[in-house]
């Protein structure tokens, strides 16, 4: 096996019921340098994760037993592993439902391993904040440890996924200024201007349920109507 990435090979869990698709994606992803585990159903996928947590889960929404949303919610109960869901259509309600169930990103069929690989790399990037910032940023009762990847509220650690953490870190790095959706799409997900803004909106909603005492009246992550979001320092 040849590795294109050069670094320690990452593991991907493919949860997909179509054997042919599983087989060819495995071939192509392995060719891109990933280690690939397969699961033919939602239940099998959950068992696989319980057995060995992969670096990324690629989750088809249409599965024979448990649907993808349920699988995603169960994964999120005790894991922050990045989940990329596979949907049939860009503009269906599935996308929002999947993101709300805890997925970090989505791809539409037909899948190509090279594009998938770019998504995976973006999700596995570490949180980065410009050099001049302290490694610890305080926003009210929140304390964001950029280096450690830990957020505490009143000293109690919060369970954020990697993507939620990177989103918060990006907002924290803006010094209280507004971050546009396009900017967040680019820095957190690695998309360009035409990325799907729903990624940002749903992740902000999810982030608020974790960092805000009253998510309906956010004090930390506030909306700048028509512009984007900012973190109140």
């Amino acid at each position: 096996m040849r590795s294109n990435t050069g670094d320690v090979s990452r593991s991907v869990l493919l949860v997909e019921d179509d054997a042919r698709v599983r087989r060819v994606l495995r071939l192509a992803l392995e060719d891109e340098g990933y280690r690939v585990a397969e699961a033919a159903s939602g239940t099998a996928g959950l068992q696989e994760i319980a057995h060995a947590v992969p670096d990324v889960v690629l989750l088809d929404l249409m599965l024979p037993d448990l649907d993808g949303f349920t699988v995603c919610r169960r994964i999120r109960r005790d894991s922050d592993v990045p989940v990329i869901m596979v949907t049939a259509r860009t503009d269906s309600h599935d996308v929002v439902a999947g993101l709300e169930a805890g997925a970090d990103d989505y791809v539409t069929k037909p899948l190509v391993a090279k594009e998938l690989s770019a998504r995976i790399r973006a999700l596995l990037r570490r949180a980065e904040v410009a050099n001049q910032h302290p490694v610890k940023i305080v926003a009210g009762d929140l304390e964001i440890g950029i280096e450690e990847g830990v957020v505490t509220r009143d000293g109690v650690p919060l369970a954020l996924t990697r993507t939620e953490f990177r989103l918060l870190a990006e907002l924290a790095g803006a010094d209280g200024r507004v971050c546009t959706r396009e900017h967040l799409l680019e820095t957190v997900w690695g998309y360009g201007y035409f990325g799907d803004s729903r990624l940002v909106d749903v992740h902000v909603r999810r982030l608020r349920t974790k960092v805000e005492r009253d998510p309906a009246n956010p004090r930390h992550v506030v909306t700048a109507r028509g512009l984007g979001y900012r973190l109140v320092l």
Binding site: R20, V21, V24, L25, A28, P110, L111, V112
Partner: peptide, 17 residues
């Protein structure tokens, strides 16, 4: 068509690599 297309596109990618 998407399932066979997935097979073709990814196989072709391996070949192109």
């Amino acid at each position: 068509l998407r399932t066979p297309l997935t097979t073709m596109l990814n196989s072709m990618q391996v070949i192109r690599n």
